[in-house]
Design a binder for these strands. Sequence first.
DNA 1: GTATTTGTTGTTGC
DNA 2: TGCAACAACAAATA
Length: 293
Amino acid sequence: MPELAEVEFFRKRWAQAATGQRVVRVLTHDTKKILRGVDLPALRGAITGATLKVSAARAKQMAFRFSGGAWLGIHLGMSGELFVKPANYTPEKHDHLVLLTARHALVFKDPRMFGGVEFHLGSEPPRWWTKIAPAISSEAFTIEAVAAFLRRRARAPIKAVLLMQERFPGVGNWMADEILWRAAIHPTRQAGSLRPAEVRALWRECRSVARRALATIAGRGDYLPPDLNAHIPRSWLFWHRWEDGGRCPKTKKPLARATIGGRTTCWSPARQKRVARAASPHPKKQASRPRSR
DNA sequence: GTATTTGTTGTTGC
DNA sequence: TGCAACAACAAATA
């Protein structure tokens, strides 16, 4: 499940319950996969008795910082989730890491075990945190940077390129489809074949989808939605991409599905054409984008 | 029993 | 060298 906004949702869930709280105990399970490469005794020693100070999410990575200079990194992989349970919670089969505070159990559950945990002790941020590309919402995410990246990946399908974390940090399968659908670009188009107007549309929709996904999925300020999808509008491709006989929310025409770039991809053939639209002397009016708020 | 899954990494081959 | 494609990782679900 977890892409950019879902990761922030889960981070916030732990942060709301435990920021400022002391960890009294650390439980671990299945050290072979999720916790591979982690110095468990060091992690346990540093985090037991430490207080959760601050946390942040970048792309699909989370960092929880504790007193004493301990950094706990969590990547949810394909099926990972974070929960907050009562302190007397009994860990279940796929609960790989559980932090106990006086009142809560912070649970990292991951059935498929593609996720991972990182640990670092020190005042300097660890490499697994600093190496993450600048956020899509940052000023560094410019049209020029996107255009240059598309040139370098000129022969790959644009869908595959959008999944590359080095330039589109946090974008996963559904966000990539949502972005292409809104930008009206066919997912198999070669990245290098996009016209300047299409590159601009792609850039704009990257920023728009990232911003709106964060606002609707992870909430604003202190507010955390009751569940991940509670506020996602029906007008997004999101809700229709897996539906049998699903229809494009914009054109009402049938959606198509195929494996592109190794991932199941959903698009609207009526809206996303295989070839670039010819330049028009009367550019189509922009799809309405209420800039409210 | 088969095919599917919203992620990442290592390998292979061009 | 750089890039693109693909298998592998593991387990639940339909």
